[in-house]
Design a protein around this nucleic acid. Structure first.
Length: 424
RNA sequence: GGAGAGGUGGCAGAGUGGUUGAAUGUACCUGACUCGAAAUCAGGCGUACUCGCGAGAGUAUCGGGGGUUCGAAUCCCCCUCUCUCCUCCA
């Protein structure tokens, strides 16, 4: 959520910056609502002050045993007028809030302006795609004989669900363990385990609600508030600090968590239907940092580096992309995507997305720290995939395939595979 | 799943319809006393918002939301969390 004061004082500029990410801010509607709000709030507060004063008088008079009917008559008509004013003000404020909650974050100045992914800026390439001297297969054909079982997945749950068995399941687990261990022991993150079902307030906090409810799996409960399956551990972990005030010296907070992620992929009909690139359920090792506002952009570089380290240790070629304004996610101020080389697709595919959210989430969550002046100030939040486990599995299968269809286990994973060095 | 008790300022803890934004203690800040400190005394001390150039004034806020009332921390309803007991369970 943007700072409403910024909208009040610098509306045109905000609108221009939001336009660069394809969000049209209705400037006229917003100022009209704001003007109306200002007036109505003042008049409502005047009425409230009047009511409070009269009620106080009634109390005083009654205490002395005096007759209060005159004062009572005086405020008799106030009630309806006040109620009407309060209702109108509340609905006005709801409208303003609805606008605010629907507004994406402002892109940072270092973000290239562009309309879509074609205008993203490649920052670097790491590694050299392997040259194969045989006809390569994609992960579906490679994985099938090794335990990658789409049929069972869809029998149990439908399209976009996958079952893993045997060596593939082991490899999947090994990847997650390896990532988690690397981030905790080499990058200084605290391991976290979180609920996979969260309430609406948490999803409001990180920005998935109210705007993207159709992307989520919702669990309705009679007589209780609904819960949602997390679309990413960013939600559960970042919300650790919702409604809290942390000490300045405790920053930065660094958490990593391995969780399943659930996405309805409502808008993705027809995309990536083959294989396990796009699933309703996938595992991810997430990185989250809660930092001092001065540190967010430098931390983004560091955090992205932590995700890159995993790809480098696995010796998977990748490139780093600075997303342009038109391609960034809703809450992001700046985002680097890491794209891994997939030989069967002959292209780089997203395997990690690392973002600085600035104060966007912190404002929604009321996540603050005590600054040097002793005042409460919003923290900044960052998150990144370190990495998406399913897609990493795909990348390992395709990049480490052999002519006979077997898969060489990357060296970094040997310690996690119980002596297995080749899957066949 | 069943029954009960609770949620009040940074912390502890009063308050069950009326000059209550909320006693008291404690923590913290300022001043006095002191060579200095401790102790003591005096004063201050939440957050958000609105109006105002400003001094300042006002509104909201006692887990969250709604209701009753001229007036709600206090009464009613829904949700939520914590604790205790029973039941069940990995």
């Amino acid at each position: 959520m943007l700072d409403i004061n910024l909208l009040r004082t610098d509306l045109e500029n905000v609108a221009a910056r939001l336009a660069s990410r394809k969000f049209i801010l209705d400037v006229e509607a917003f100022s009209a609502l704001e003007n109306e709000r200002k007036q109505l709030q003042t008049s409502t507060q005047d009425l409230q002050a009047k009511r409070n004063a009269s009620s106080k008088l009634i109390g005083q008079a009654k205490a002395k045993g005096e007759d209060v009917s005159a004062i009572m008559a005086d405020v008799a008509n106030l009630g309806d007028e006040l109620k009407a004013a309060e209702t109108a003000l509340a609905s006005l404020q709801d409208k303003i809030n609805d606008m605010l909650f629907a507004m994406p974050n402002l892109p940072h100045e270092s973000v290239p302006v562009g309309k879509d992914e074609t205008e993203n800026e490649e920052v670097l390439r790491w590694g050299t795609p392997r040259v194969f001297d045989f006809e390569i297969k994609d992960h579906v054909d490679l994985g099938g004989p090794l335990g990658l079982d789409f049929e069972t997945g869809s029998k149990l749950s439908g399209a976009r669900f996958t079952a893993l068995k045997g060596g593939i399941a082991r490899l999947h687990r090994a990847l997650a363990q390896f990532m988690l261990d690397t981030h905790t022991s080499e990058h200084g993150y605290t391991e976290a385990y979180t609920p996979y079902l969260v309430n609406a307030a948490s999803l409001m906090g990180t920005g998935q609600l109210p705007k993207f409810e159709e992307d989520l799996f919702k669990v309705n409960r009679p007589g209780a508030e609904p819960l949602y399956l997390i679309p990413t551990a960013e939600v559960s972990v970042t919300n650790f600090v919702r409604d809290t005030i942390v000490k300045a010296e405790e920053l930065p907070l660094k958490f990593t968590a391995h969780t399943p992620c659930f996405r309805s992929e409502a808008g993705a009909y027809g995309h990536d239907v083959r294989g396990m690139i796009r699933q309703h359920q996938f595992d991810k090792v997430e990185l989250v940092q809660i930092v001092h506002p001065d540190e967010s952009l430098s931390t983004l570089e560091i955090l992205t580096g932590h995700a890159e380290a995993i790809l480098q240790k696995l010796e998977l070629p990748y490139r780093k992309v600075n997303l342009c304004t038109g391609d960034m996610g809703f809450g992001a101020q700046k985002t680097y995507d890491l794209e891994v080389w997939l030989p069967a697709q002959n292209t780089y595919r997203e395997i990690s997305s690392c973002s600085s959210m600035g104060a966007f989430q912190a404002r929604r969550m009321q996540a603050r720290f005590k600054n040097e002046q002793g005042k409460n100030e919003l923290v900044h939040t960052l998150n990144g995939s370190g990495l998406a486990v399913g897609r990493t599995l795909v990348a390992v299968l395709e990049n480490y395939q052999n002519a006979d269809g077997s898969i060489t286990v990357p060296k970094a994973l040997h310690a996690y595979m119980g002596g297995l060095t080749v899957l066949k």
